[in-house]
């Protein structure tokens, strides 16, 4: 099988390239291969779309966690600041 034919029929390789594309640059050859594969493969087109959305959602999840802040209770905080003051006084 020629290298081009290989990618046209290989969803495992195509999904790998989709992941690679999300974090670094594809080579020219890889770009063409992926484009050809996606042109003919509707299943991987769904994967391609969902994979990018998942990344967005994960990012959102982490930034939400930081914004609608879960708080530490006051006792814990007081103890913490006390500990810091003690350390400061040592010096």
């Amino acid at each position: 099988m020629g290298p081009l034919k290989k990618i046209v029929y290989n969803c495992k390789q195509a999904t790998f390239l989709i992941e690679k594309k999300l974090i670094s640059k594809l080579t020219f050859r890889e770009k063409i291969e992926l484009r050809i594969h996606l042109y003919g493969c509707s299943v991987c087109r769904i994967f391609n779309k969902q994979s990018a959305v998942i990344n967005q959602m994960v990012k959102q999840l982490f930034s939400d966690a930081n914004s609608d802040q879960k708080h530490l209770d006051n006792d814990f905080k007081q103890g913490l600041q006390q500990r810091i003051e003690e350390e400061l006084n040592k010096n």
């Binding site: 966690a65 930081n66 879960k70 708080h71 530490l72 814990f76 905080k77 913490l80 600041q81």
Partner: peptide, 28 residues
Amino acid sequence: NPHSWVDNHADYLYAYALSRISDDEQAR
């Protein structure tokens, strides 16, 4: 200004840690 570290940053650092390691005690 370490005297105000807890007031200014403790909640932020806690939420940051908790979202990444999902363990309340470990985050504290």
